[in-house]
Write a protein that binds this DNA or RNA. Sequence first.
DNA 1: TGCATAAAAGCACGATCGTTCGTCATCTTC
DNA 2: GAAGATGACGAACGATCGTGCTTTTATGCA
Lengths: 200, 200
Amino acid sequence: MRKGEATRERILESAFELASTEGLAGLSIGRLAERNGMSKSGLFAHFGSKEGLQLDVLELATARFRDRVFTPALRADRGEPRVRALFNHWLEWIDDQSNPGGCMLTAAAIELDDQPGPARDMLVDVQRQWAEMLARAVRIAIEERHFRADVDPALFAFQLYGIVLSYHHARRLLRDPRARRRARDAFEALIQTAHPRPTR
Amino acid sequence: MRKGEATRERILESAFELASTEGLAGLSIGRLAERNGMSKSGLFAHFGSKEGLQLDVLELATARFRDRVFTPALRADRGEPRVRALFNHWLEWIDDQSNPGGCMLTAAAIELDDQPGPARDMLVDVQRQWAEMLARAVRIAIEERHFRADVDPALFAFQLYGIVLSYHHARRLLRDPRARRRARDAFEALIQTAHPRPTR
DNA sequence: TGCATAAAAGCACGATCGTTCGTCATCTTC
DNA sequence: GAAGATGACGAACGATCGTGCTTTTATGCA
């Protein structure tokens, strides 16, 4: 009972790494078994099916994202500081060494957008929640009068998401060293448009 | 000589469709042959290798992108109109029915970001050119005094790219019907930040 | 220490993968 | 009409895929 749980986690760990660079579809039971020094069938028994394995990996990815981005940002002060914290942790998450292939959720979003099934459903759920979380943080910033009252929280979340995606693109595909600075500049510009107009 | 060229193009056409939804790695010679009512070996002979096929598909994708987005935008007036045309054609391209799985280049950008090889190299080239093209259009808008002189063309391109990526995400994964409007709003907001400040 | 049980291995299966090879039909060109 | 090039086919290859079974090994508790 105990041992099984441990190896299962070890497998999931390396499955996460593999899927991070190769994609969820690139996860192969055979290679995964080889990496973990065990037999295909022995590994397979832990998940019941390849789809089960993919779902578990996706679940692990969202749990980590929660722990590294979502939760720590909640410790920041309400309003603009929290919006900033969300953005900063998000960028750090993308660059984190435990994500050798960039953000798995972003990769999965492209990979699964035309692949109906439980994996896609789970991912859509997570992404909707995340977008809602971003919008909520913006709404709070409006309440705190850090942002103007006419700021559209959902639109702000949309724009924020865009900056992060563009960063992901520039950083991971183009390997552009200026990506980070651009992301920060874009973020500051976005924040600026949301700030109250100077009283005159 | 003539016949071969024709079937080759027919194959590439359906390969493009297949790769659009399944990804470049999801391209399978067997299924592709089945779809085209011909044998695996007969089809295979046209490309020499799977990698060759992928490269040809990628090439087709960039050619189409050029024809549908790049080139028509050049017919718009220099300056802000051209920037708007680039954006509009880009959005239309994403929604185009000939792209059943969304923009192939975007999907490939995620799929190949950790897969070194000629396909990745070609894609990086195209994407760099595209970013440069966007920046150039912005630079022209500055020259035309449509945009302020202190606008950073590369940053503007980065932001524009972000809006489109966010649109892709909201539209294709989340199936959010408000995606289009959000993209337009974000674009107008971006344009606004680039406009000359009102004289007072 | 023994035993029930959980975990892993071993083996095999049908499919599908990309690829090679030899052959045949069709068409062009002399 | 003969000769040669072109295009497609069928069969087969070694590998790998996911997934069942049965057997062996390891583990945790009485």
